[in-house]
Design a protein around this nucleic acid. Structure first.
Length: 560
RNA sequence: UGGGCUGUCGCCAAGCGGUAAGGCAAUAGACUUUGACUCUAUUAUACGCAUGUUCGAAUCAUGCCAGCCCAGCCA
């Protein structure tokens, strides 16, 4: 049984996990498996970030290892406290809680500096006085080698002295840089004596003005990993070319790190119709094209959350797409499928009408309101039911009626009988039009014997329609095209308990139209995918989903 | 035309010398008080292309083609 389980989990290991398994089997590390997720706090987490988190986090879990969140903040020009808060919050929300293991790259500045003095003494790095332009020119091109810096052979003593003076703030930014002494002729651009420390005159959001010099990513990252006892540093493919440098650094510092971590890479994911990449997301946010990092049209964690995605659905999605070796583009329907799967049995399914068409039940008594008992979730009786008002005047979805039914159309049309969900069978008798020929209302008759719950079986009906009692609706949310939805309202149904007051998605009409007015597909950023799920489902345990909208998305309706 | 990486159904993705898993999407049908859900069936003689090695290749070799990444004192 155990063997079976083990064999099973082995079979499902992705290629990165297999590498870990090999290391485990070979006893490559005398410490437990240790992974990390190292975001730079310069933006909010998005679905692609979560994909990277998941790879590192679940590997640590799977092999009884540890996982660190490390805020990789070595560039004071770009980072901010706002982002670290958001990153930690989003990770916790998504179920990747780093617990106590939250670290900061900036906390290692002192240690890295010490190691760097040793590196210089060992002759592995030198201070270079070339200007940025000169440096670029001497780097060569993709097809031709670079040329050695004239400062490359200065003595370690001189470099050390200069480096200390750089640290003391004696030189302005851009005048000098510390470079690793590797190989200007390397076909790998990253190995052409890369800059590893630069002078920056900026306050660091955490370290303040303590430092005048800051280590570059390529140099700091391997050291940070090593300090944290990381064994497997899994990052995205664009760093593949940096791996030789990562290894060079750790080798040069092997006196300090005898059992260095190893970097391995995975392909990034894209989602169809969504833009990922902090750089572009930032443009949208800062350019005012969206409401903020939590705009529901964005694939950020906060946006996804406001759009209605649950953490469970996101995790399931991440598990289903696997781990790629190269860039892949996952169809958003897979994400949506995960949500539907998750919400199916746990979200109250209520009725909503986007485009109302008035329906009059001619044989129903005037001034009577009847409360129909409607289950909150057809598949989960524990979710109970609610009372819905029913009267002579109702509204249904305009698209649920056709005066002249197309082939295959089985909803409401003159002469046809359908069920109003949770209520009665109604039969269409006529449609009223205005001068322009638009249908303004539809007349029906109902059959009292078909009332829901009475087990009426004498006749069957081909369709069941969503409906709402006219005048008894509430504007509960806008969809992502900025259209207002009318949702059902019931006497014993407290919307306030279902809707997150913080959410801007669930809001009053005026606000809604204003904040999402630009959301039409024709707008300038139409490349952002528009969603189907409305209301903020995330903040409440009992998520709410407007089933109608899910259905509109799911089903290519026949005859329309 | 320097180097690195990737190429299996529309999209993800297993397989890693023994004769193409699975999921999403799609299509057809059944069921249905959401045309949802559920169920059932269908969907690569084919693994970027071409040679070759082999009894046998998606899996190995060689060549070619396509895509992605790299010339920040960004990460």
């Amino acid at each position: 049984m155990e063997d079976l389980k083990e064999a099973d989990s082995k079979a499902s290991s992705n290629f990165l996990e297999k590498i870990i398994e090999e290391d485990l089997a070979a006893g490559a590390y005398s410490r437990p498996i240790h992974t990390r997720f190292p975001p730079e706090p310069n933006g909010y987490l998005h679905i692609g970030s979560l994909y990277a988190v998941n790879i590192n986090y679940s590997a640590a879990k799977k092999y009884d290892g540890a996982f660190n969140l490390r805020l990789d903040d070595t560039n004071p020009l770009k980072e901010d406290e706002e982002y670290v808060k958001a990153i930690i919050e989003d990770m916790k929300w998504a179920g990747f809680d780093p617990g106590e293991n939250v670290f900061y790259g900036s906390d290692y500045f002192g240690k890295i500096y010490e190691l760097t003095e040793q590196l210089i003494k060992n002759g592995d790095a030198f201070v270079c006085d070339l200007s940025p332009d000169e440096l670029r020119a001497s780097r060569g091109t993709l097809t031709s080698p670079g040329t050695d810096s004239p400062w490359r052979n200065r003595t370690p003593e001189e470099s050390l002295d200069l480096f200390r003076r750089m640290k003391n703030g004696e030189f302005p930014p851009g005048t000098r840089v510390l470079r690793a002494k590797i190989d200007m002729a390397s076909p790998n651009m990253n190995m052409r004596d890369p800059a590893i420390y630069r002078i920056l005159d900026a306050d660091h959001y955490r370290a303040g003005d303590e430092w005048k010099i800051y280590p570059m990513y390529d140099y700091a990252h391997p050291i940070q990993d090593a300090i944290e006892n990381i064994t497997h540093s899994m990052c995205s493919v664009e760093f593949k070319d940096h791996r030789p440098l990562y290894e060079w650094v750790l080798k040069a510092l092997s006196f300090e790190f005898p059992e260095p971590p190893k970097q391995r890479e995975f392909g990034r994911i894209n989602i169809t119709g969504a833009i990922t990449g902090k750089r572009y997301l930032r443009q949208l946010v800062e350019g005012g094209y969206v409401d903020g990092w939590d705009d529901p049209r964005l694939p950020t964690v906060k946006g996804l959350r406001r759009r209605g995605f649950t953490k469970e659905s996101i995790k399931a999605f991440l598990g289903e797409i696997g781990v790629a070796r190269d860039m892949s583009t996952v169809d958003i329907t897979m994400l949506e499928h995960s949500l539907r799967e998750d919400l199916k049995a746990k979200a109250p399914a209520v009725m909503a009408v986007l485009d109302p068409l008035k329906v009059i039940i001619d044989n129903y008594p005037d001034d009577t309101i009847e409360y129909m008992d409607v289950e909150n979730n057809a598949e989960n009786a524990e979710m109970g039911s609610r009372k819905l008002p029913f009267s002579k005047s109702l509204i249904i979805e305009r698209e649920d009626f056709q005066e002249v039914p197309e082939k295959g159309f089985r909803r409401l049309y003159p002469g046809n009988e359908v069920r109003l969900k949770g209520a009665y069978f109604v039969k269409c008798t006529s449609a009223v039009k205005d001068e322009a020929g638009n249908i303004t209302e539809v007349h029906c008759t109902y059959d009292p014997e078909t009332r829901s719950g009475l087990s009426f079986t004498a006749r069957k009906v081909k369709a069941t329609l969503h409906w709402l009692c006219e005048g008894k609706t509430v504007p509960v949310a806008v969809n992502l095209y900025g259209r207002l939805l009318k949702g059902e309202i019931g006497e014993d149904y407290n919307w306030d308990e279902l809707v997150d007051p913080e959410s801007k998605v669930v809001c009053k009409e005026a606000q809604a139209e204003e904040s999402l007015a630009d959301a039409s597909p024709e707008s300038k950023w139409q490349f952002i995918r528009h969603g189907y799920f409305v209301a903020d489902l995330a903040s409440k345990p009992g998520s709410l989903v407007f089933n109608r909208i899910v259905a509109l998305k799911d089903t290519k309706r026949k005859g329309s």
